[in-house]
Amino acid sequence: MNIYVVVKPVPDPKTKLTYDPEQKTVIRAGLATVINPPDKNALETGLRLREQSGGRVTVFSLAPPSAGESLKETLAMGADEVYLVSDPVFAGSDTLITALILARAISAIGVPDLVLAGDRTTDSGTSHVPAQLGEWLGLPHLANACEIVLRDQKNLAVKTSLDEVFISYRVTLPAVVSVTRRINRPRLATLLEMVRSRSKPVTLLDAAALNLSPEQTGLNASPTKPGRLLPARPVVKEGTIMSGTVGEMAQEILNRLQSLGYGPKAGGGLG
C-alpha cells in the first residue's frame, strides 16, 4: 500500500513564545521545532497499515529548508522517504494555497492509495488543510478519524468522532483522511531506525519542480490575508487572592464550593 503522510514542523509547544510589540509579530527566531503532535498520530497510522499490508510510507512537508533536520525524526520513526516542499515564494500562503502546493507535490510524485494528516496543527490550528487538499486532488476526504481499518485493497473503514456522535464510513481509495489524537499512541523513534535512515532520501521540491509561479503561491495568491496583531485584552476582574498552607487553601476552596451550593457527593463530609 502506498501511503503519504503530510506533516508540519511547528514551534515546540513547550517553549513560550514572546511577542514583539514594536514589530507586532511573534518572535520565531531560534525556536526549537518539533513534528506537529497529531501528525505523529497520522504517521503511526501509516506505519501500522504498512506493517499490515506492506508498501511504503512517504512524508510530505511544506516547510522552510531549516525544517529538514526535524523531519528526519519521521524517518527515525520508520518512514521510508521525505519530500520537503519548500520555496521562498511559498511563504505567507494561507490554508487554501498551502493545500494547493501540497496537492501539486503529491500529484508530481504520484497520487498514492492514501494520504494521511493530523487533524490540526498546534500553531495555527485551523484544521482546514486536509479537507482542502482532498478537494484539490479530487479525492474523497474525511476528517476527525479515530479509527481506520483497511477493509480490502480498495476500501477503508473509517470511524470519525464528532461532537455528540461517532459516524463510520466506507471510503474508496485513493482518499485523504485526517486523524485525531485518540486514534493511537505514536511510537518513539529508535536509534536503530535512525541509523537505517542514513540511506533514506530527503528530497527538496521547489516551486520550479512543481511548475508553480510566484503569482500562484504565497501571500499574494492567498484569499485570506492577515491584518494586525493585537495583544489579547487584559481581563480586569475583582477577585480575592490567597496563599497559605496547603491545608488552608484546600479548605478555602471547599468552603467556597459549598457556599455556591456544590460539594462532595454523599459519602464525604460536606453537604
Binding site: L17, Y19, V26, P223, R228, L229, L230, A232
Partner: peptide
C-alpha cells in the same frame, strides 16, 4: 479576530478580494 499563536495574541484575518 482569531486567537493567534503565541502568548495571548489575537490576529485579524481579512478576505478582501474573494
Amino acid at each position: 479576530l482569531v486567537v493567534s499563536y503565541g502568548e495571548n495574541i489575537m490576529g485579524e484575518i481579512l478576505c478582501p478580494a474573494h
